[in-house]
Design a protein around this nucleic acid. Structure first.
Length: 510
RNA sequence: GUACCCGUAGCUCAAUUGGAUAGAGUGUCUGGCUUCGGACCAGAAGGUUGCAGGUUCGAGUCCUGCCGGGUACACCA
């Protein structure tokens, strides 16, 4: 039975206690009203373990909330062996106190049973969710903004998995379009058959360098923009030479990006490549046009979104060619065809709030049922000490240089504190610390807030930081190891500490 | 111009989604300890939650209007 009573409090033990509270209140409160009530935690421990705000009862009791609390506390009769040992009114609240021995019994038995799986649940049993995140372009390396995306996508996936959901992590690779052609063109002009190997540069950086180079060339000669357009047209026609170059450079970019993902500790179950789908939404859109769901404007197809209070959106160009949203529409269908999904989450920066709303609205017009199960998990941008991140402007905030820089700082810090460690050991520790620091720093922000990234603060070893948690973990493990041989009765404490330690550790790993 | 997001302690962020006296870290100040993992401990000061209204038993949270910052509004991706 599902009580609205417990909507804010989770856990098996708590739900047992709340069930009992429900039973206790049943004889005084009409069951309809009772089901609408909420039990919450009191702000302070001394006030009790659970509390019932009595405001909502004022109407039906025709008394002030405080009077109701008094009346209830006087009249409720507790069960002898129950979980609740005491009821007390305080102002407008009715506070419940738990029988500590009974609750300890229950909680500890659960702890021993579940061990480090404590905290897991199965509320997502039989539900399948797709988390689409990262979605990189194949013309440059990942930057700090991508890392926020990656951490959000990855941690949401882990949280869902821990709660019993079947999670499919997907990555849409934006491997097509004018931006890709720009780095290709610069390579054609200045590449001289160089390769990442010959230049000893990480392969995605190699490609990215040509993207930056394009911008330089454009400043000298604006005509080059047209050449890029021509290159795109050749690509679309399937020109063999162009396709071969595209494939080569894409592979370089992807290889490097995947290496960076490994460094960040994130991965995927399925990749979708835009180049495979960019044309395929056309059929769906033309069909919609036939059914008068869309309109034609000067040969192009347009979705009228007035009904949704959104600006209109073009779906096909007047020459019939595809736009980005063309493949987005198709992909939505494809994902549902590939997997039986209960929900799809797009982890995409807030710059795309509008276009995501438009996409969902268009899918709604198409009566694509799954559209109502699609969500945009929007997050704000990442600033570095005042300056906005932009790889085009040449600010070095790509993930690889950032990690390297942080690692250097961490190694210095480790050396200072422990002079006996081997180089390999130091490097290993630095890697763990840096990743924990970065994840914890970025994930502590609410998703919609702008992150002010400060490399020094993120790596700080004290305060509310990843390294501090890791340090606490290490200390607890140290204490456990030293006391292993001591008295039996400590075992329980040790186990509890270990569970706590693992929990802390998980926080830096989500 | 229109739409969306943000505005909380000097600084960086929380606040059980409308609940009791708005909390942490950091910085500052006071005191302790001088390295059993000291990357420490105890304490203090620090707030008109951007401003003005409204809704209600109750608002940092919801509504309206302003102010400030950001983002987006292409037959780009």
């Amino acid at each position: 039975m599902q009580y609205k009573l417990n909507s804010k409090i989770e856990g098996r033990f708590a739900s047992l206690a709340i069930k009992e509270i429900f039973e206790l209140l049943k004889q005084f409160i009409d069951i309809k009203i009772l089901k609408e009530l909420e039990i919450i935690y009191p702000p302070e421990r001394e006030m009790g373990d659970f509390t019932l705000p009595c405001f909502a009862l004022a109407k039906s009791f025709r008394k002030s909330p405080a009077e109701i609390a008094v009346k209830l506390s006087k009249n409720i009769r507790l069960k002898k062996e129950g979980l609740i040992r005491k009821v007390k009114n305080q102002d407008t609240y009715l506070n419940f106190f738990i029988n500590k021995e009974r609750s300890a019994e229950l909680i500890l038995s659960e702890v021993f049973l579940k061990k480090d799986k404590i905290g897991e649940s199965d509320i997502g049993k039989n539900r399948k969710i797709m988390i689409e995140y990262l979605s990189p372009n194949t013309n440059k390396p990942l930057h700090l903004g991508h890392s926020r995306n990656a951490f959000i996508g990855w941690s949401v996936s882990k949280i869902l998995k821990t709660n019993g959901y079947k999670v499919i992590k997907t990555c849409l690779i934006n491997d097509r379009g004018i931006h890709i052609c720009k780095s290709m063109l610069a390579y054609q002009k200045m590449g001289n058959k160089k390769t990442p190997k010959s230049e000893k540069i990480k392969s995605d950086h190699f490609v990215g360098d040509y993207y930056v180079l394009f911008d330089k060339l454009r400043k000298e000669n604006p005509e080059i923009e047209k050449e890029a357009q021509e290159l795109l047209q050749k690509w679309e026609k399937g020109d063999k030479k162009v396709r071969a170059l595209w494939k080569k450079m894409n592979n370089w970019a992807l290889k490097g990006i995947k290496e960076s993902c490994d460094e960040l500790g994130v991965g995927f179950d399925k990749f979708y490549f835009e180049s495979n789908y960019y044309k395929k939404g056309r059929y769906i859109i033309l069909k919609g046009l036939k059914q008068k769901k869309f309109i034609k404007e000067g040969g192009a197809v347009l979705a009228d979104l007035k009904k949704y209070n959104l600006p209109n959106k073009f779906l096909l160009r007047s020459d019939g060619t595809a736009l980005y949203i063309t493949q987005d529409i198709y992909l939505s269908y494809l994902k549902c065809k590939d997997y039986k999904l209960n929900k799809i989450v797009h982890v995409i920066a807030s710059e795309q709030d509008l276009s995501q709303k438009q996409l969902f609205a268009i899918l709604d017009i198409l009566k694509f049922n799954a559209a109502k199960n699609m969500r945009h998990l929007s997050y704000g941008m990442v600033n570095v000490e005042g300056g906005k991140l932009k790889s085009r402007e040449g600010v070095k905030v790509d993930i690889d240089s950032l990690l390297a820089e942080l690692k250097g700082a961490a190694e210095a810090e480790i050396k200072k504190r422990n002079k006996k460690l081997s180089k390999k050991e130091i490097a290993g520790r630095a890697k763990v610390i840096v990743l924990g620091a970065l994840k914890y720093y970025i994930l502590q922000y609410g998703a919609k807030n702008i992150v002010n990234f400060n490399p020094k603060k993120s790596l700080s070893f004290t305060g509310n930081t990843g390294p501090y948690l890791q340090y606490t973990y290490a200390r607890i493990i140290g204490i456990i190891q030293k006391n292993k041989s001591k008295v039996e009765s400590r075992k329980l404490l040790m186990l509890l500490m270990l569970i706590l330690a693992n929990y802390l550790m998980r926080l830096t790993q989500v």
